[in-house]
Design a binder for these strands. Structure first.
Length: 312
DNA sequence: AAAAGTCACAACCGCTTTTAA
DNA sequence: TTTAAAAGCGGTTGTGACTTT
């Protein structure tokens, strides 16, 4: 027959462990070793189930656990391994001595995931985010003439208070990369957003001083620091490098066109018949009602691009 | 100063795989 | 070989600390 139950679940304590409980568990394991979790709680004088004791020991009390802030190297290792393994936290933890799968999982969800999103990288695929690619399609010169592109930019800038500066900079950069003649660019916005974006970059770039190189074969960018040529990275640093901005953006667009299709999300362009009053002023904010009203006039899906929660 | 909102993380839940009887 | 608990694992939640309003 099978094993006997590890414990009677009735009457057992749940929730946070007290220092007294921790000490009982530590004392028992120091004397008797870990394992045999079924009988451990009773012998150690703990009103906990064996599973709770095992998790407390493996995730928190084990003497070889390294506590404290993750180093940049550890963070880069996690990002690298996650790009290959996905959410295989225990496998990732095996490559990081002293770190538990639970700790790495928590750190990913609370820190790294958000950093990648801010950089325009999808934390699941480790590729450029599809909503940013959508932006590429809106400013693709092979689809629209200069007037239409200008209209698109104007409309996007009209709701700029809702947009992450990264989006605005990318929009401007895309247009400048496609057209030598930048007359239709709103230069003040461009400069302002470049400044804003450099601040964002300095604040959030998780790769620190990692250098970015061009991959001549795939014609996309990869991060040499991570040594993962199969995983494309879209980077602020790359886009802002001078004087090869146009070439870099062209590479990104080439990568996009090879790997994604935009048929389902391509906008049909037409100029809005009117513009909400507040959008004609220099106001930095608009109301929710105005936003909805304005977005409803757009034929491309601004709300879809501007998933604020995802960007911030 | 208090209330509301946000964040971080320990702990739990539930499913799958492994193991012991 | 079968069975059921233990162990492993990833997702989710509860809660205390901190920040913002």
């Amino acid at each position: 027959m099978g094993r006997t139950p590890c414990c009677d679940k009735n009457g057992l304590k749940k929730g946070p462990w007290t220092t007294e409980e921790d000490q009982k568990l530590i004392d028992y394991i120091q004397k008797n070793g870990s394992g045999n979790w079924r009988i451990l709680p009773k012998n150690a004088g703990l009103q906990r189930c064996g599973k709770s004791c095992r998790l407390r020991w493996t995730n928190y009390l084990r003497p070889d656990i390294k506590r404290g802030k993750f180093s940049l190297e550890e963070e880069e290792t996690i990002i690298h391994l996650h790009s290959i393994l996905g959410n295989k936290w225990s496998t990732i933890a095996a490559r990081l001595p002293g770190r538990t799968d639970n700790e790495i999982k928590n750190y990913w969800n609370t820190h790294i995931r958000k950093k990648l999103l801010r950089m325009g990288i999808d934390p699941i695929t480790h590729s450029p985010r599809l909503d940013l690619l959508h932006l590429n399609s809106i400013f693709n010169p092979s689809l629209y003439n200069s007037t239409q592109l200008n209209n698109n930019l104007s409309r996007l800038l009209g709701v700029q208070s809702l947009i992450n500066p990264e989006i605005l900079r990318l929009a401007n950069s895309l247009l400048s990369s496609h057209h030598q003649n930048q007359n239709f660019l709103l230069q003040s916005n461009f400069q302002e957003n470049q400044l804003c974006n450099s601040n964002v970059q300095n604040q959030f770039n998780p790769f620190g001083q990692a250098s970015l190189i061009q991959n001549p074969i795939q014609n996309i960018s990869t991060c040499s620091h991570l040594n993962t040529p199969s995983v494309p990275f879209y980077s602020d640093t790359l886009v802002m490098q001078q004087p090869n901005v146009e070439q870099s953006l062209s590479n990104i667009l080439n990568f996009n066109s090879q790997d994604f299709t935009f048929d389902s999300i391509l906008p049909t362009l037409s100029t809005p018949s009117s513009t909400p009053t507040s959008l004609n002023s220099n106001s930095s904010t608009i109301s929710e009602e105005e936003r909805e009203s304005y977005c409803s006039m757009l034929n491309f899906d601004i709300p879809n691009i501007l998933d604020v929660d995802e960007f911030m």
